[in-house]
Amino acid sequence: MQQIVNFLFKNSITLLFLLLLGISLTFTIQSHAYHRSQAVSSANAVTGYTSEQINNVEAYFGLREQNEQLAAENAQLKRLLYNTQDSTNRPPVTLPTELGTYKVIQSKVIINSYSKQDNYLTISSGAKDGIKPDMGVVSSQGVIGYIENTSAGYATVISVLNSKFRLGAKIKKNNHFGTLTWNGKNTGFAQLVDVPRLATVIKGDTIVTGAESTIFPENIPIGTIEKVYIDKKTNYYTLDIRLFNDMTSLGYIYVIENKDKKEIEQLQQATTNE
């Protein structure tokens, strides 16, 4: 007994080190394990509040840019409004088919990261504003990501610039589907993989969200095709997409809730289980 106590006493620093190392390694491995598993995140009261205060000051430096973006978005919405008077000429793709399916919550990015392999954003609304995990996040220019974790007042978002990010997307012109991913190299570009070879892909074509996504409404812009090459392993096309969003400077954003999501997922679950 005496010897055990002596041993513990002599190696107390090493034991403390191993304990702390164990805890922090657990956090690290957990955060890499699977989607929505991060134990340590900025969606908590202390870090959320301080980041919000810092962001309040920083926001003043981007007001002009923010105003211009809002004006551009207003112009875009006005264009839709003025051009829908002729009901025979209405573009069927620009408005969601059923009104009331999607709920939109306005929020603001308070922490933005883009220099890492797995990037997350933190936004200033959380569970008490009605935000739940797996809701879509867009800006006026296009897709940003989806919600990962929420606390009472804050939420973290998996950004497009994250190796865990997956989203069904399509080429707007001919409806060929692919999966949007990020290879971790350039913050201005994402990759659309697994596009069938029979699709006609032309540089400059617009990529939008696909209809099979339960997170995003259809036809939200993502970016334009920049480069086309063939994946040697799978023999499918891989496209480099120039994102419409400048992911390095984000301000106000919209969180989209799909009210039919649960119903769709239950249906899919029931079908695959049979």
Binding site: S24, L25, T26, F27, T28, I29, Q30, S31, H32, Q38, A39, V40, S41, S42, N44, V46, T47, S51, I111, S113, K116, D118, N119, Y120, T122, T156
Partner: peptide
Amino acid sequence: DMYLNTGGP
């Protein structure tokens, strides 16, 4: 880690 959302490293 909390502020950077890195999760532990």
